[in-house]
Design a protein around this nucleic acid. Structure first.
Length: 298
DNA sequence: AGGTGTCAAGCGTCC
DNA sequence: GGACGCTTGACACCT
């Protein structure tokens, strides 16, 4: 079980998600920002390796405005060498990276403009991982999308739109249960129609489920993964105590985490912590998992 | 230097 | 039909 965290390392001074305002778009800003972000990403990965963290979510802001029409900067060729070096580092050390485009990416939107912009954004994400020369186990996770007043039609539209995606996107795309519209059962249905592996998110499942027990749910999502896709991915987070339902806890709830590991013992997956204090929780989680006799690569 | 309004993008909910 | 939450940092302008 690889254990990791998302996008930001609070112990490091740098950020790999630096951006700027659209109004201040320029080749100079692009060059400087992407260079800084890639350099920071490498620093984050080095930090992770030193501490035994082998799983990491790369920020979608790595290349700002990459899929925006304003972007005429050839970041792919300008930074080909840097991307390749990062990818080599990831591969050489047996690490896994993933990406998670944000809420605006909706391939099932009935609005053709939103659909097109979403595909462009997914192509950008695939380009990042392709430039790193990483195999298809390094995934891009999205949600099914909007309901638009008709769940059945909107799920069918997802499947149809998926069929038309470029191969580079398709080979990496995985779908995650969300907290209100499309739960685990819906994602399994999408998998049945498209073959897309299902990422299981514990907090979303707690908010949106059909009564499936945790272990059965993790196993069901895990069964949608083929060998070439790598181990199933699970996103883990605890509910913020006293916070709004769905709010992520600030730090790892050790007791809750032990319970989760005990419930899922024997199932194989990599675990992404969606906890606000980031790498600190990842380190604590790794230590707890090892105490419980679970193998985490060091 | 510090404070603060705002930022590419959308859905669903609520009034 | 319009405002807001989501979830969050930090950009960029203002004083």
């Amino acid at each position: 079980m690889k254990i990791g965290y998302a996008c930001i390392n609070l112990s490091l001074a740098c950020r790999s998600s630096r951006t700027f305002r659209l109004k201040s778009y320029s080749a100079e800003n692009m060059e400087r920002t992407v260079r800084g972000n890639l350099s920071c990403l490498m620093e984050q990965l080095r930090y992770n390796l030193e501490r035994g963290i082998h799983y990491f979510r790369i920020s979608s802001d790595l290349v700002p405005f990459a899929s925006h029409p304003v972007c005429d900067y050839p970041w792919q060729s300008e930074f080909a060498r840097e991307f390749a070096a990062i990818g080599r580092f990831v591969s050489e050390h047996g690490m896994r990276v993933t990406m998670h485009p944000d809420q605006f990416i909706l391939i099932n939107s009935p609005d053709e403009g939103i659909h097109e912009r979403s595909v462009a954004e997914l192509v950008y994400h695939a380009e990042v991982l392709d430039l790193m020369r990483l195999d298809r186990s390094h995934k891009i996770q999205i949600h099914v999308g909007g309901v638009y007043g008709d769940r059945v039609a909107s799920m069918a539209r997802f499947a149809a739109r998926h069929r038309e995606l470029p191969a580079a996107v398709k080979k990496r795309l995985v779908v995650e249960n969300d907290e209100r519209s499309y739960g685990l059962a819906d994602c399994l249905e999408v998998h049945a129609r498209t073959g897309i592996p299902v990422v299981f998110d514990t907090l979303h499942h707690a908010a949106n489920n059909r009564g499936e027990e945790l272990r059965a749910a993790v196993a069901a999502a895990g069964s949608t993964w083929k060998k070439k896709d790598g181990l199933p991915m699970v996103d883990y987070s605890s509910q913020k105590k006293g916070g709004k339902p769905g709010a992520h806890a600030y730090s790892l709830d050790a007791e809750d985490f032990r319970f989760f590991l005990e419930e899922t013992r024997g199932l194989e997956f990599d675990l992404m912590l969606e906890v606000k204090n980031k790498e600190r929780s990842a380190l604590e989680a790794i230590s707890i998992a090892r105490e419980m006799g679970i193998h985490v690569p060091g």
